[in-house]
Computed example of a mutant assay.
Amino acid sequence: MKNFIKKYIQNLTDILQNIDENSIISIKNALEETINKQSKIYIIGNGGSASTASHMANDLSIGLKTRGIKNFDIESLNDNSSICTAIANDIGYENIFYLQLKNRLKENDLLIAISCSGNSPNIIKAVSYAKDINCKVLGITGFDGGNLKELSDINFHVQTSRGQYGLVEDVHLILDHIIFSYYVETYNKKSLN
């Protein structure tokens, strides 16, 4: 077990050392554009990525709003289990995000799609719809990036071997915490001056 722990931590450390800092800056800028344009941010993901989507929506909305830092209008579309399961049961799982976005997503909005494989049919269908209406897509991917990496206007990618969900999901959540912590620390420094 000790050897596994050391190896896992080393792999995570190696991945973090190679994060594309410019993609994080692009993400921050895209988030702030939604305030300037008075538009909305939608986040989607399955499984562990759904959890990250919920966590990100929490941090970047209420987490920043209650501190008086930013007022992003964010919604995680996987958080309403009644809607997701009704669409999945009645129409098909590949439609759970697409149907929530249809005739609601606007060109100035931002769609954040989180997928380790980048190939989940429900993610790709929603992203394709966003691209059809010229909405900006931020893809957060792992493994080789899949189709989502290619379709994204901005991509935060965690390159790993296929199936290394733990490492990819760890780094995706760290991305959220980097952005959240940046805003909190920047705001606190301004408050002290």
Rank of each mutant, 00 (worst) to 15 (best):
R104S: 07
I96F: 10
L101V: 07
K106E: 09
K37A: 05
E32A: 06
L99R: 13
A88P: 07
I24T: 05
E75R: 01
L99K: 13
E94P: 02
D79W: 06
A130E: 10
L60A: 00
T66E: 15
I112H: 03
H55Y: 11
C116N: 15
S120Q: 11
C135G: 08
D79M: 13
L105Q: 01
D59M: 07
Y129V: 14
L31P: 01
H55I: 05
S61D: 09
C135L: 13
A57M: 02
I83N: 00
N78I: 11
S120A: 13
K131P: 06
I44D: 03
I124Q: 04
A57W: 01
L31I: 03
D73K: 11
I43W: 08
I74D: 08
N95E: 15
A86G: 12
I87P: 03
N58A: 10
E94S: 05
I91G: 06
L99Q: 14
N89H: 07
G118H: 14
K125N: 14
I25M: 14
S81N: 10
N78E: 11
L31F: 11
Y129C: 13
D90G: 03
N122F: 15
E33P: 00
Q38F: 00
E75P: 00
K102Q: 13
Y98L: 12
N119I: 11
S117I: 09
D59F: 10
I24M: 08
A126K: 03
S76R: 11
R67P: 02
S51K: 15
P121E: 05
Y129F: 15
N29I: 12
S23W: 14
I114G: 00
G63A: 09
F72N: 01
I43S: 04
I123R: 00
P121C: 01
D79R: 09
I74V: 08
G63W: 12
I43Y: 04
L64D: 10
K125H: 15
S117A: 11
I44H: 02
A30N: 00
L64M: 10
N134Y: 12
Y42T: 01
K70Y: 09
L105E: 02
K70R: 13
L64C: 08
G68Y: 12
L60P: 00
L64R: 07
F97Q: 09
I87C: 06
L105I: 02
N95I: 13
I35W: 05
G63P: 12
S115Y: 14
S51G: 14
N22W: 04
F72H: 01
S49C: 12
N95C: 14
R67C: 05
A130C: 12
I83R: 00
D73L: 13
S49D: 11
E94M: 03
A130R: 11
E94C: 02
K70E: 10
I43R: 02
N80I: 07
G45Q: 05
A53W: 07
S128C: 13
Y129A: 13
F97P: 11
N89G: 08
N89I: 08
K37L: 10
H55E: 07
A30Q: 00
I96Q: 04
T66I: 15
Y42W: 06
G92A: 02
F97V: 09
I35Q: 03
I24K: 04
L111V: 06
I25S: 13
A53M: 04
R104G: 05
L105Y: 02
T66D: 15
K70D: 04
D90K: 01
Y98S: 06
I83Y: 02
K106I: 04
